[in-house]
Design a protein around this nucleic acid. Structure first.
Lengths: 218, 218
DNA sequence: ATAATTATTTAGATTAGTCTAAAAATATAT
DNA sequence: ATATATTTTTAGACTAATCTAAATAATTAT
C-alpha cells in the first residue's frame, strides 16, 4: 500500500523533472515538499526500495515507469476534480487547487472513471492543463509564454504556469481568463514589462506575470 | 488540527453511543475500530485532552458537545457523498460505503455546502439514513424493524440497519430496495424466520435479515 | 464476602515521517 | 590543485498511532 506522503513525493518528483533536469535534486525536492533535505533523502530511499524511483546517492532521483504511472494517475485525478468543482459546484479557478490536493488521494478506480464520464471526458482543467487519459497519455498543445510572445501578434490565453490563488486572483482582477484575447502592444526594454490589450483593454504586466501566462497564436 | 484517526474514533463513539449505552466501553470501541483496547485507551485519553470526549478511567467515554458536532458533520459529509455517488456517478447502494469513508474526511466547508445544493438538499442517503442539515439537526422518521413487524400488515422499506455490501447484495438479489412494499405473511415460531411478500413475491427471511431491515407502516 | 473472571490501564517497544546537528561527498573559486 | 563553499547523507531524537505483555480495577459467581 502506498501512503499519502509517498504519493505527494512522487507527484513532486514528477513535476520537478518536467520543469528542469530529469534528475531531481534532494534540496529541490525538500523545498517543494516543505521539508528538510534529510527527510527527502529518507523518502527517496524508501521510494527506491519500493521501486517507484531510481536513486544513486548524491546523484538525484528519477521516477521508474511505475512511479511515473502513479504520478500521472494522481495528476489525472487532481485535474478531473478541479473540473468537477468549477463546472458543477460553482468554484472559481483560484479556489480549487488546494481542495483538489485532498481529493486526488481518494482511492477508487470506478470513482475516477465515472467522474470522467460524468464530466464528459474533459481534456483540460480550469487552468488549461491537460488531463491525462485513462491510459496515462497526455496531449500537449503548443503554447507560448506571454514573456516569449511577439509584438503586434494576437493570442488567446490557454493556460497558466503558476496556479496559486494569488496569481489567479490577479488575473481575475484584470479580467483575464482562459480564452481571453491578448494582443502584445509593446515590450519595455528596461524592465521587460509588457503592454498588452487584454479583451480589448490596455494593461501593463510585469515579467513575472508574463512568465506565468500561456498563450496560443491566433 | 484534528487527525483522520481522531475523526474516525469520534465517529465510532458517536455510532456506538446511539445504538447502546451512552457511555461507550473501551473494548467496544477497540472492536469497532479494529484495534486493541490499549490503543483505544490511548486515543480516548487524547480525545479527552482535546476536549472532544469526556473520560473517567474505567467508566467509558462520551462525546462532548464539540465532539458530537464533529461526528455529525462527518456523518453529514458521508451521507451526502453517498447520494452523489449513487445519483450522479451510477454507483449502487452496496458500493458506496467504503468510498464514502474516504470522502467524508475531505476538509472544505464550501465543498459540502455546494454538494448539498448540487444534490438538491437530500434528506436521506441511499440506505435510508437521515442526512443531518447544515446546523447538525437530524430528522428521524418513525421506522420499525421487520423483526418487530406485525403479521398481515403492509409496510414499505425505508432503510437498513446493516449497510455492508453483503447484506445489500442479498437485498438486491431478492429485489428489495428503498420503497419496496413488504407484507408480513407469517412468523415461524420455531426460528422466528418470516414469510413476507416483497413487491408481490413470496420470500422467507431469517431473523438476522429481519433485524436489519427498517419498514414504515403503510 | 471472597474468589474467579473480565475489562481496562500501564509500560515499553515499533513504524512512518519528521527534525537538528554533524559528517561526508561534490562543486566552485582562486 | 588546493581550499572553500555547497549539497547530500548519516546519526540520533521526537510524535502519532499502534502493538504485546503485565498490572490493576471492576464485575460476577459461588
Amino acid at each position: 500500500m502506498i501512503t499519502l506522503t509517498e504519493e505527494n513525493y512522487i507527484k513532486a518528483i514528477y513535476h520537478l523533472s518536467k520543469q528542469g533536469a530529469e534528475n531531481v535534486n534532494t534540496n529541490a525536492l525538500a523545498e517543494a515538499m516543505n521539508t528538510k533535505a534529510s527527510s527527502a533523502t529518507d523518502m527517496i530511499r524508501k521510494l527506491s526500495e519500493k521501486d517507484y524511483a531510481n536513486y544513486k546517492k548524491y546523484k538525484g532521483v528519477t521516477l521508474t515507469e511505475t512511479g511515473k504511472r502513479i504520478a500521472i494517475n494522481i495528476i489525472r485525478k487532481h485535474r478531473l476534480w478541479e473540473v468537477f468543482l468549477v463546472e458543477k459546484l460553482n468554484f472559481t479557478w483560484d479556489e480549487v487547487h488546494e481542495l483538489a490536493e485532498q481529493l486526488e488521494h481518494i482511492k477508487s478506480q470506478k470513482l475516477i472513471d465515472e467522474l470522467d464520464i460524468f464530466l464528459g471526458h474533459p481534456t483540460h482543467d480550469p487552468h488549461g492543463d491537460p488531463i491525462p487519459n485513462k491510459d496515462g497519455e497526455i496531449t500537449y498543445v503548443e503554447k507560448t509564454l506571454l514573456s516569449q510572445a511577439q509584438v503586434n501578434l494576437r493570442y488567446s490565453c490557454v493556460g497558466v504556469n503558476d496556479s496559486s490563488s494569488e496569481f489567479l486572483q490577479y488575473l481575475n482582477n484584470n479580467n483575464i481568463s482562459l480564452g481571453s484575447i491578448i494582443e502584445v502592444m509593446h515590450i519595455e526594454p528596461f524592465d521587460k514589462s509588457i503592454n498588452i490589450k487584454a479583451n480589448g483593454k490596455l494593461l501593463t504586466v510585469s515579467q513575472s506575470v508574463a512568465k506565468n501566462l500561456y498563450l496560443k497564436k491566433l
